[in-house]
Amino acid sequence: MPAIEILGLEKIYSVGFWRKRPKRALHPLELTVEDGEIFGFLGPNGAGKTTTLKLLMGLVFPTAGSARILGREWTDPSVKAQIGFLPEQPYFYDYLTAHELLEYYGQLSGVPGKHRKQRVEQVLQQVGLRGVQGVQLRKFSKGMLQRVGIGQAILHQPKLVFFDEPMSGLDPMGRREVRDLMEQLKHEGKTVFFSTHILSDAETLCDRVAIIHQGELRGVGAVEDLTSSVQGKVEVIWQGTQVPASIKALGAECHVTADRVRAIVAENQQDAVIDILRRERQRLIAITPVRTSLEAYFVEKLRRAETTAGSTV
């Protein structure tokens, strides 16, 4: 059973004060997220990521379409007991302490009273917020609030977690911890759906990603399929500061940094390059196939979408 099935969800807002006009925030979206995977929802700012998440959370109502979450209609209130949600740039009741806030959310999510206190402590430790007793959230930094946000999303041990830009506002250590947490959630058999525009995070974490731009789905697939090798090229790295003329003659793209040389050559020239390096007594360090980065794939998709949009105008 898929964790999420989005069946043609569409959102058109009415904008303008006097003469209302329609503004399409999301074209009919069809998307399936499998149980137990980490799914990245990628797109530039204003692409429709947050609108999709708000639709799934029931915060805004769709113009058309529906969705199923954990096998049930997404409007079924019982579904919400099994999902966690971190909104983008979360803001909480700042007159509460982190303990009080999590206690309150635990009550609303139906976490039994006898386990609640213990669970709150456990979650605060998990998100790196131990020892903040008695401090109201109004005194928390942006990064600390983000941690509280992640804590409240996983507090009631949901089966499915939605994170909207979870790395936003976090320092490199914080980002690393969130990545570890997501991997831990996956390890526990949970499904993670997260939106981001930080592609390196998506590339490191996700089993599959979807790319959305101008409210329209532009591509979806497994990260390794999207970043498969291109045009049969390999990257050869060796120790040295000079590029032998015979390698240059093969048409290799070469870059020298410190005491290393990187050369990108056609796959069928790989053996010839190795022979040259052996002859020149250079120390070979690595040979790896050149893959498209997720970033390159993403940029290419967006460019293509903009070209199509331009040609239809």
């Binding site: 708000k54 959370m57 029931g58 915060l59 209130p77 019982s78 919400k80 007991a81 999902i83 949600f85 909104p87 740039q89 979360p90 803001y91 909480f92 009741y93 959310y105 609303l108 999510s109 139906g110 946000g149 409240q152 009631h156």
Partner: peptide, 14 residues
Amino acid sequence: EKRTLYTVLSRPVR
């Protein structure tokens, strides 16, 4: 306005 509602209504709260 402060979006505190998002984390309340995304729970089983009608």
